[in-house]
Design a protein around this nucleic acid. Structure first.
Length: 574
DNA sequence: GCCGTTTTCGGCCCGACTGTTTTCAGTCG
């Protein structure tokens, strides 16, 4: 059974090779393949299964899939290949993934390099540069040839996306510095940072000012800048130390809103807005919304959306996944707000693998503005993390109770991060668990079991009457570990059935549930919790990433249990 | 190659920056 990602990848490569080969209207044909690839990549149902059930006509129901592409998908599902793609690959035997990854190389250049120098991959490109043969190609100079070496090196260093939590502090620091510059009225990191995606490809700064050169000068001369890629009167592109790209666009204040929209994206969302503008005989660009030559909006984002007949859409929702249709109907949900959590239901102490005492964690949580925390040390079978046995757990619970009584304005709930065993049972007896205020359960071992077994472990844990929350339900670590295979829909259904909450673990390595699963849970009516998984007093700051993930999952405050005060939360548990 | 409140044909998002380009193509976001 072909995965959606595999079908998507094949269509994307097909589109790119069509573009490389060239011809009439080829960019539109390629765009059609790309669009189809995007649609399939984010399609929630398995396309192979849809095909198995309803044949090619089912494929035609999917937007951006017409007769021609449907036939290619059919062939891919049945034969694991697309004939036309193989023919193209035979004619132009290039390593698209490698060459396409080099900045500045597009389809046209790649074609020229293949035709003139038979360059098919990165190694070949490198050889040609080393032998000084690139400069002989039309459009290439010695300087451009040298630049190519840097681009290759950058690609080799790994141009992968960065985890948001790792770059967020620097992003915000530079944002603050831009804001302080003379003449700067507004400054913000737009792009995927503003949308709070879990990973960041580059940082897109937007500044409003009537004297752009001040901001641009500052930007290209910052200590963090490794290399200035380009610098014009309104825009600059740099590489920061560590290899992350940063862009700056400076606009006059009257264009702030339209520029913010344009720079926040995502691309598909913005393109959809421009199409709406065209349908209304308007023109939308980063400088404003225009009716003929007359500018009718642009100073604020709200105005831009309004003249297009849309409700303003929170950045976290801007992924062209149905939010625009909701905005037309003025039915954008009121998303859970940053700072609205009253408690944190996963907090570790030095009793297991944390680094601070219960008292220190409680004090830090209070300082952070929380009203309650749950102490969730690991349990005995997780020896690696110093897991607590029944006796130690009860002792820790009574300490939590005592501390809670002694504190003003901070409730400390007794809890545990109970380990789910290979067979789905828990490693702590239920008569002990039932003495705790709240119980979270999680998988920490046996990640490579088959999906059916893995799903059954979670289902069994959810059906356990003692378990209130499933912590980090898929076990993934972003960019590091895929997580165990799990039928998340089934887990969500059982969670609904058993009134078990699902966690969004806010640690930026996890963000688990991820946005799209959170959205599935919310749609079905399953309650979420957003927890920091704090192992140190400063970790409560991670909650912002969890809230962001919930917002990306279209969750409202009502969908998240720990927006409730402690008493109401305890009453809402199963 | 897809799609339709502008169409079953003729469009398809839009502008900035670079280079060796003296008027525009290629690339990027």
């Amino acid at each position: 059974m072909a995965k959606n990602s595999e079908i998507s990848r094949a269509l994307r490569e097909l589109g790119f090779l069509v573009e490389v080969e060239g011809g009439d209207n080829v960019q539109f044909k390629a765009r059609a393949y790309y669009k189809a690839a995007d649609t399939i990549a984010s399609w929630t149902e398995n396309v192979s299964e849809l095909y198995a059930k309803g044949g090619i006509n089912t494929l035609l129901q999917i937007p951006s899939i017409g007769r021609a592409i449907a036939a290619k998908i059919e062939q891919f599902i049945r034969e694991g290949r697309i004939g036309q793609l193989e023919e193209l690959k035979a004619r132009i035997p290039i390593n698209t993934a490698e060459l396409q990854g080099i900045e500045g190389l597009g389809p046209k250049t790649i074609k020229v390099l293949y035709d003139k120098l038979q360059i098919t991959d990165l190694a070949g490109l490198e050889r040609s540069v080393a032998e000084g043969r690139l400069r002989g190609v039309p459009g290439f100079t010695e300087r451009k040839e040298k630049d190519m070496l840097k681009r290759i090196e950058f690609f080799r260093r790994g141009k992968g996306r960065r985890i948001i939590g790792e770059v967020y502090p620097l992003v915000k620091q530079i944002e603050a510095r831009l804001l302080k510059l003379a003449g700067v009225k507004q400054a913000v990191a737009a792009g995927s940072v503003r949308r709070m995606r879990e990973t960041i490809g580059d940082i897109d700064y937007l500044v409003s000012s009537d004297s752009p050169e001040v901001a641009l000068d500052f930007f290209v001369k910052m200590a963090e800048v490794d290399e200035v890629i380009a610098r014009g009167p309104a825009k600059a592109f740099v590489k920061l130390a560590g290899g992350i790209d940063a862009d700056l666009l400076v606009v006059p204040p009257e264009s702030w809103g339209s520029a913010l929209q344009y720079f926040t994206g995502n691309k598909e969302h913005s393109v959809a807005l421009r199409r709406i503008a065209i349908a209304k005989s308007l023109r939308l660009n980063e400088w404003g919304v225009y009716e003929g030559d007359k500018k009718i909006a642009g100073e604020t984002e709200e105005q831009v959306y309004e003249v297009l007949g849309l409700q303003w859409i929170p950045p976290e929702m801007r992924e062209d996944r149905g939010e625009i249709e909701l905005a037309v109907q003025k039915k954008i949900p009121k998303l859970i707000e940053y700072g609205s959590l009253k408690g944190d239901l996963q907090v570790h102490t030095e009793r297991s693998d944390g680094t601070a005492s219960m008292e220190q964690m409680a004090a830090a949580a209070k300082e952070f503005g929380l009203e309650y925390i749950a102490i969730t040390d690991h349990t005995k079978s997780l020896a690696l993390a110093g897991g607590l046995d029944e006796e130690e757990l009860l002792d820790q619970a009574s300490k939590a109770g005592a501390l809670s009584d002694s504190l003003d304005g901070m409730r400390v709930l007794s809890s545990a991060e109970v380990n789910i065993m290979k067979d789905g049972s828990l490693d702590i007896a239920s008569n002990v668990l039932d003495k705790l205020d709240i119980v979270g359960a999680a998988i920490h071992s046996n990640f490579s079991l088959p999906i059916e077994v893995q799903t059954e472990r979670l289902v069994k844990a959810a059906r356990n009457p003692s378990v209130d929350i499933l912590f980090h339900p898929t076990g993934r670590l972003i960019n590091k570990r895929e997580g165990y295979p799990v039928d998340i829909e089934k887990v969500i259904d059982v969670a609904l059935d058993t009134r078990t909450a699902l966690e969004i673990d806010a640690h930026y390595d996890r963000l688990d549930l991820k946005d799209e699963y959170a959205r599935m849970a919310v749609q079905k009516g399953v309650k979420l919790t957003i927890d920091s998984d704090a192992h140190h007093p400063v970790h409560f700051a991670y909650l912002v990433f969890g809230i962001a993930q919930a917002r990306r999952g279209w969750a409202t405050a009502n969908d998240v249990l720990n927006t409730l005060p402690a008493e109401k939360l305890l009453n809402a548990l199963k």
